[in-house]
Amino acid sequence: MAKKRERLQVIRDILKAVQTNRAIKPTRLLYNSNLSPQMFKEYINELISKNFINLDIDKKEKKTFSLTKKGQEFLQEYKSIENFIENFGL
């Protein structure tokens, strides 16, 4: 059985999917995230509230997600964060 992902890994995977797909639709992001719909909703709400991603709604009321500057910064610093946690046993 696959090992359960840590919270930071899940966030990284979601942000990477948004970064790769630029303006990604919610259904596609749910599929890429490998999360249950309930967990997906919780993570997305957290990421929007903490300004890691934006929810954009166009004139035809189609929703897509895009990465914010903070989200990009997280992806750039992810390796440092992971190393920090590993090396200080946190």
Binding site: L8, K50, K70, E73, F74, E77, S80, I81, F84, I85, F88, L90
Partner: peptide
């Protein structure tokens, strides 16, 4: 330096450190 990582990750271990 640790605060910068904490603000991005909200990791509790980093916070306590």
């Amino acid at each position: 330096k640790s605060h910068k990582l904490f603000k991005l990750s909200m990791h509790q271990g980093i916070r306590y450190f």
